[in-house]
Design a protein around this nucleic acid. Sequence first.
RNA 1: GCGGGGGUGCCCGAGCCUGGCCAAAGGGGGCGGGUUGAGGUCCCGCUGGCGUAGGCCUGCGUGGGUUCAAAUCCCACCCCCCGCACCA
Length: 992
Amino acid sequence: MSEFLKILREIEAKWQREWYERKIFEPAIDDERAKFFITVPYPYVSGPPHIGHGRTFTVADIIARFKRMLGYNVLYPIAWHITGTPIQAVADLISRGDPDTIRRYREYVMLYVSDPKEVDKILEEFKDGWKIALFFAKAYERDFKSIGLSMDFSRQFTTGDSDYNAFIIWQYQKLRKKGYITRGKHVVLYAPAEGHAVGEHDIKGGDEIEVRIQEFTLIKFKLVDSNEYIVAATLRPETIFGVTNIWVRPDATYVKATVNGETWIISKDCAWKLQYQDKEVKVLEELKGESLIGKMAIAPLVDREVPILPAFFVDPEVGTGIVFSVPAHAPYDYAALIDLKRNIDLLRKYNIEHIVQKIEPISIIESNLGTQPAVDIVQKMRIMNQLDDKLNDATKTVYQVEFYTGKMRDNTPLSGLSVQEAREKVKEMLRSINMLDVMYEVEPKGVVTRSGNRIIAAVIKDQWFIDYRDPEWKQRALKLVNEIMKIVPEKYRQQFNATIQWLELRPCARRRGIGTRLPWDPEWIIESLSDSTIYMAFYTIVKKLRQSGISQKLSELVKKVYEGSEDALAVIEKFFDYIFLGEGNVEEVSKLLECDKNIIEDIRREFLYWYPVDLRHSGIDLIPSHLTFFIMHHTAIFPEQHWPRAISLNENVIREGRKMSKTLGNVLEIARLPREYSADLFRLYVASSADLESILDWRESEVQKIASQLERFWKVCNTILELGPPMEEYTFERLHILSKKLISIVNMMIVRGKEHLENFRIREYVVDVFFNLLNEVEEYINVYKICNINIDEVRYTLNYVIERWIRMLQPVIPHICEEIWHRMGKMTYISCEFWPSPGPLSWEIINAFEILERTLEDVKSIIKSREEPPKRIYIYVGPSSELYDIVNMLIEMLEKGMDMRTIMRELSKDEKYRPIMNKISDLLRKIINGMIPRIRTFKDIEYEVFKNCEKYMSYRLGGVEVIVQDAERPTYDPVGKAKQALPGRPAIYVEW
RNA sequence: GCGGGGGUGCCCGAGCCUGGCCAAAGGGGGCGGGUUGAGGUCCCGCUGGCGUAGGCCUGCGUGGGUUCAAAUCCCACCCCCCGCACCA
């Protein structure tokens, strides 16, 4: 087994070398041929590719190779995505000497470089993000070649290249001029110590915990006899009507600060955070929580004076560090109130005994939990004090139940409203009297960056957005999805529709990372999902851009744009306007770029030839993001004839039933495939073990099974090669019935396999063309001697088969097929061959063999019903051919959708059938209940097949003698079975 | 919560759109046999229950319904998975 894989790997390396050296997958435009432009989203090259990438790119490759076989001029290009922050973040961490990151990247590099000194050197270079990107771009190329992808590697670029920047600049100018770019406030996760917004990859444990931003309502309580406000934070503003007091933590540090011109009392931590949330904050003085205790403040809306009291559950790092207390509805508040009432020392210390003792919960909401949920739940859960952990759950329960089922009671001005409605209403009311503000908090508490710095919520006030809300734009996108584009598997279409409807504002630029700068505001870098929407157009021209030297010119222009040059920007716009939209005129453009106008025309032709994208293939995870942007932006920028034509998708890859992840350490990199497995083995596994819409589970034991199937195929092919070519040609008619069958099946597969692939049914295609055909061929080789088929005829048949078979399999297992092709003495590359055209195909024979299979099943079922082995088996084929004709006619009528009654009525009109209507209704019933198979068959063929397969059937039945007779003239029929024979259902007599 | 997709025999998984050839493809596992010095590989057969002739019964998340006929259509319920944004 492993011996076979070794041979296979050598074969694979050999043909890969040839294919890529000879550049056979680098097409040029050719007006004589139809083109097929297929793309997969370029990968983000921050690490090595794994079998998840492998699956997606292999599926696309199978389609690409297939389309090539159909005669299309196929372009399957690749490029590398480096835009954004993750690569930058890795470089930063390596620079800082982060041990985890360095260990991980050392392992990555060692997949490609064995010399440890070399590895060290490379890791040293990884302090520069660009070096990381370039290293892994190379790694991807190498890995993609190692699984035999028929890609055009000559059009590679990275999204950091300056000609690409120019292209993106053009795109964003277009979007802006169309009014799709806006600016506004935006809340993000932010690390003040590092001075930038953070993404998931920046957060320690970010791939495991779900970090989100929560909006707190701030309610201002005016201190009695003062202009100062004590500001409480809450998620439940509607409970203000039940307020009894305010909690502060006596030992925490608070500040008096001016916030946007008012004087607020809030926690010191809060004051610090607020300055990142678009607020003008100036701290006037610090004070201890203690010093506030006993003071009175006025609750807005209810206009009640409430006291400020001490509580220890209050966290100065959450919200403002000040809580207004609603003991009827907030378990924490109730628990704290009980604690305080019991704590005589504390009451005396602050001299608040008299006020505290008369505080009672005020119920303002009625819900499924009653009117005093906090009181009830604290008692029911036996919560001991305000620091009890169970309070968290209690709070969650009350919050949820009241949110969904709560109604405001009539002691509030919002009597009868649901809690949801009341919440909004209260906010409005507070806002109108200027007693409301908001702040944002990170949930859960305590998340830090990979470097250990605190993460808070920050408001960016001048964020650039793409505004997807324009209904007319959405309409165009919906038209593309629903009326123009093919989506495979069909079931994902709904998700595109849903995503388009739901899209609103998307921040499209950041201040950090690699990428293209906004031409009108170069402080901002266009974010990675926003710069990768229509770049397939760039593939069509990048080669010419570079050959012609225009890339250099664009590069200089980009530099000038960043420096603020309007002229340079205009040149970029005019150039791409002409290339992609045919706007403007060549003379002007060529003059501006100082180049021959033929070059410009040439580039324009490239685009016109290749565009639109015929198929974009991707993993399903990109549906709600990139693929929808891909759709939206195409409809924004290009005219309808350049809109993409189809999207195909595949599910994810898991391994041994579990998700692949860095934390589990179970990621299988493509780099390991050619060492531990083989390219064709991988491809066959990917194609055969799950259809597109199913998760593919990479299971070692299954992979080994597929490996042995591949070896079986290899052996069969070599057996055929060893038999050599036939001495003479054979017409179909001359052949033995088994040869006819095999050739018919191959020709059937040529038709059916093509249909499967045209409809992306890759798995079914492999099942048919690889597995089923393999069974057929092997069976033929096993029985040709038993059935006395002339050896030269066998050679002819098998050569006929293999020559077509390996061409059909080329899209999935190109290397092994290429090898066999050449061993057959062919000089061309099978990778560039055509799909075979179908030859002679006898459905009658295929059908008769199906009947034979069914008959064998029946015989086995009969044999099974007795202990002792049978002596002899008699098979009586067919009644008169007239009955066959009738049955065939009935089957046809049924297939047309006619029911029994209609058929009978129809036939009884005919003189010919009237006398035998009884017989006909009997046959019809037997067809309907399945006794007679719905397979078109004829007496003579059925008989011929059975008669010629006596030995074959005997072999299949473990050696029992089989005798086939014509049911109309049996020579031996002791119990009168022969007369039971029906079309497609020979009679059986087993002699014991 | 909002949006999308699913629940099939011991397991994985087809089929359901276009109802009947569906006891339900194909694997895997298990059992039996062959090959082998033994083991593995490989090959053949069996693998819901009953039945001494190709048959019958039960059956495709649960409960109803439509139909001569339902895994397939309709309704209700239960359960599971995925996405929810500035992140590639």
